[in-house]
């Protein structure tokens, strides 16, 4: 359980780890994607400017789970990529929310998203 430093309610999930040599090697082999975080909605877990590694095939064999931080496609603005946490799952739709949900635009606005809009799992910082 992570306590938000911004006065919001406690957040579910574990802090993501730093990139190790294995993840770096996987990125070199194009098995991981590197993304830069923009915006404050994932504070205190992710800060603006942080870079993260995303595993695009993480959900090929297993389904996304509540608490996972994921890279997702915005349901109405297909060019936009989002970093959010899965808060709940119902009928193969995923309710995403920012950890700093006082300052996040997420599924509370655009509703739960289907699984095919989840593009990968954030597995570590870079």
């Amino acid at each position: 359980m992570v306590q938000s430093q911004l006065g919001c309610l406690p957040l579910k999930g574990v802090p993501i780890v730093d990139c190790n040599i294995w993840q770096l090697a996987m990125w070199c082999c194009r098995r991981r994607q590197r993304w830069q975080v923009q915006g404050r909605s994932m504070l205190p877990t992710l800060h603006p400017g942080d870079q993260v590694l995303v595993h695009p095939d993480a959900y090929q064999d297993t389904a996304p789970e509540v608490g996972d931080i994921v890279l997702a496609q915005h349901p109405y603005r297909c060019e936009l990529r989002l970093v959010k946490r899965i808060i709940s799952i119902a009928d193969d739709c995923y309710f995403l929310q920012g950890d700093n949900f006082c300052e996040s635009t997420d599924s509370r606005t655009f509703q739960a998203i289907p699984g095919d809009l989840i593009l990968g799992k954030v597995i570590s910082f870079f």
Binding site: W35, G39, R40, L43, L71, R81
Partner: peptide, 13 residues
Amino acid sequence: FPAPVAQAHCDGP
């Protein structure tokens, strides 16, 4: 190698 941007989208409070 600059990374592409993923939005922790926020319109502020």
